[in-house]
Design a protein around this nucleic acid. Structure first.
Lengths: 194, 194
DNA sequence: TAAATTTGATAACATATGTTATCGTCACGG
DNA sequence: CCGTGACGATAACATATGTTATCAAATTTA
């Protein structure tokens, strides 16, 4: 889902830069829907400033699956390669500055890159590591209690907790906001902070 | 995780058959450990007869992640490509007949195949679809109650329920055996079967 | 075949988590 | 400056799920 071209493959920057002119700059307020569940993603989106989440609806309330921040990009390779509709809605959390690269250019870029020696094996490694990531998320859901997942978030990715409103965190941990409050107050008791 | 060479790519059978002589036939009783958590997988394993499960330990009891049956093969591409230790234990459920193809030959086979035109894109498609599968499993865990997951298993893959002892099903659904019993008896009330 | 083990159901109680309601704080636009 | 809404804490109660114990049936093993 996340796809860090620049970070993971700086040697591809030349190619990437060639497509910069085709990117569309977009400034949007918080709670702007960037991609709706059921529609096919039409852009690769890069976040220059702000913060975004992916979620789906279950009965009335939503379940957050992933957060994205500055200098991260997103799009579903699946959706691009196979033009399948997205199962997730993507929405800004904060006012954000985005750069959109239309689908056509992404495909063109991928095509160019495929002639680059070793690109395919890199792509395989990327997909393998993404897979490992999703695998870990799944295992964490099976293995850990909500409290443990919250603690992991706290130690591994504290910036998320600092920055994202708590009800989105609850939605991400798949617990109610009330229960997340309970978890926090329980942890606070154990470790007074002064 | 699962990798259906033959099923998904019959045009590759020629290559595959070339390696048949290097396979080792293995007949094992139930509850035989085929791969231990923390060790690197040394074979691609094909199941001719029997049934196998992958699981990991959490505190005392185990969580089943996946079942495998006749004419299915398994191994972690990750583990093969990157030689990372497996996070899962793999164990037979029934007495089984297996064919093992050692790691070396698998790598050799992959190398040969990589010269086959279009193989890489096929591999990408495979990994994409595996990813979708794991994604769906994760979403199902977030979205559905244990009861709903059981019903889905019942309608989508009834052979698993028919064949696998119930405590493994409970372990797969990540509920206690007691609760699975409750679910079953509740469903039985709603729909008497005669 | 008899004993031992595995499998599954059920009851009773304990714990985890959800739901609803209430309250307080804070930010922001009139 | 005030109202309004977003955000978060907490209490009270409801429901879901786990744990332990017990029993019965089926299956394996000696």
């Amino acid at each position: 889902m996340v796809f860090h071209f620049r970070k993971q493959f700086p040697q591809l920057n030349l190619y990437w830069d060639k497509y910069l002119p085709f990117q569309q700059r977009l400034e949007v307020p918080a709670k702007t829907v960037l991609l709706e569940e059921g529609k096919v993603s039409q852009h690769y989106t890069f976040i220059e400033q702000g913060c975004v989440r992916a979620f789906f609806l279950k009965d009335g309330d939503d379940k957050t699956v992933q957060f994205f921040f500055e200098n991260e990009g997103f799009s579903s390779i699946d959706s691009f390669v196979n033009e399948v509709p997205s199962s997730l809605t993507i929405e800004t959390i904060e006012p954000s500055v985005l750069y959109l690269l239309p689908r056509t250019y992404v495909l063109q870029l991928l095509d160019e890159l495929s002639h680059e020696p070793g690109f395919m094996s890199m792509l395989l490694k990327i997909t393998a590591s993404r897979q490992r990531h999703y695998n870990d998320e799944l295992l964490s859901f099976i293995r850990d209690t909500p409290e443990q997942r919250y603690q992991r978030l706290l130690t591994d990715r504290p910036h998320i907790i600092r920055r994202v409103p708590q009800h989105y965190i609850a939605s991400y941990l798949a617990v109610s906001t009330v229960h997340l409050s309970r978890i926090k107050s329980k942890l606070a008791k154990g470790k007074p902070h002064f």
